[in-house]
């Protein structure tokens, strides 16, 4: 089992956090994990991405040239990373912000209106967790039950009151893409 995932979106969409929750969940389950952020002179509204690898065996490169899954929270991210997907890979699209269809026929496309669902739940900021829910539903890369523990590790104590909302978002993302 090996998942090589690129998560991408606008700065502020919680792309790095999504990746960290996934990496932590993998670690809790005893997998080898790596989390590699893009870093640079980023600005608010610019693009951000991170690469998460989950594996049963030692991870070589944390830098991934052919991801098995891309989670695109906005259009520029989809345009940048769709071409890199390995054949048969998954592209998870936030259709709330992406009104374009995927171009490739050799990949599996999963559409989820993540931002709309997040807004329904009361906070657009959990769109990242809706997308994470869709990812876990599709790949079974980690157990849903582990994600709560991961959220506790990743979110600072003062944000722990937001965990139920985040879990709700994960659940909605999963249901939406069943």
């Amino acid at each position: 089992m090996k998942h090589e995932v690129i998560v991408a979106g606008f700065g502020g969409q919680g792309v790095l956090l999504l990746g960290q929750v996934l990496a932590y969940a993998g670690m809790v389950e005893g997998k080898e994990v790596s989390w590699l952020p893009s870093y640079g002179p980023e600005m608010r509204g610019g693009t951000a991405n991170c690469t998460v690898v989950l594996s049963d065996t030692e991870i070589g490169s944390p830098v991934v040239s052919q991801p098995s899954c891309v989670i695109a929270l906005n259009l520029p991210s989809m345009e940048k990373f769709e071409p890199m997907l390995k054949p048969g890979g998954r592209l998870i699209i936030n259709t709330s912000l992406i009104d374009k269809k995927a171009e490739r026929a050799d990949i599996e496309v999963v559409e989820v209106p993540a931002t709309e669902i997040a807004n329904e739940l009361g906070s657009g900021r959990v769109a990242n967790m809706v997308a994470l829910g869709a990812f876990v539903q599709q790949t079974k890369a980690v157990d849903f039950t582990t994600l709560e523990e991961a959220l506790k590790k990743v979110l600072p104590q003062r944000r722990h009151e937001l965990i139920p909302l985040n879990l709700q978002a994960i659940q909605r993302g999963a249901e939406e893409t069943k």
Partner: peptide
Amino acid sequence: DGTLGQMMEP
């Protein structure tokens, strides 16, 4: 290097 400095692993 910058990658090792910025990346997370267990």
